[in-house]
């Protein structure tokens, strides 16, 4: 597994819009000069990742968003069955189903595998992405 390289030339900023308006959406996927980026809104937090999957380069940000699946285990060791997490959401790659935690961008089992983060911040109420000049 190798994360695709995002070379850093002179960085530029992209203003996506007012955070108040965007945060009611869970996700937006954009293309800036040929580079795909997924932007995720989790409460007041914002994250952005390159739309290229570390598995085989699939359009990872364009898949489903699903809660993390958990297996509850009782103190006795018995399984209490499967359930969805109430607070952890996963980005699911539509090509083969790799899942990544929306906040950390890491795979839930092999944490060495993760999405490529793109700098994003809320500045003066606006969501601002910083992108490099060159393509991944």
């Amino acid at each position: 597994m190798s994360a695709p390289a995002m070379t850093t030339g002179a960085s530029r900023q992209v203003v996506l819009g007012r955070h108040e308006e965007l945060k009611i959406r869970q996700r937006m996927v954009i293309e800036v000069e040929g580079v795909g980026i997924g932007v995720y809104f989790i409460g007041e937090e914002v994250r952005a990742y390159l739309n290229i999957c570390p598995h085989m380069g699939g359009p990872v940000c364009q898949g489903k968003i699903m809660p993390r699946t958990l297996e509850q285990v009782a103190d006795s060791g018995k399984s209490l069955g499967l359930g969805f997490s109430k607070d952890q959401m996963h980005i699911v790659c539509p090509w083969h189903g790799f899942e990544f935690d929306m906040l950390t961008g890491r795979h839930p089992i092999d944490k060495s595998v993760g999405l490529t983060p793109i700098p994003v911040e809320v500045s003066n109420g606006e969501v601002v992405l910083t992108v490099g000049e060159t393509r991944p």
Binding site: V14, V15, V29, I30, E31, V32, E33, G57, P94
Partner: peptide, 25 residues
């Protein structure tokens, strides 16, 4: 150096055209 222009792209579903699903390939 701001780049005001970007284009939103949609979710890939079971009814998305194969050429779009496979554009990265």
């Amino acid at each position: 150096n701001s780049i005001p222009n970007f284009r939103e792209i949609g979710e890939i579903t079971g009814s998305t055209d194969s050429r779009d699903v496979l554009a990265h390939a």
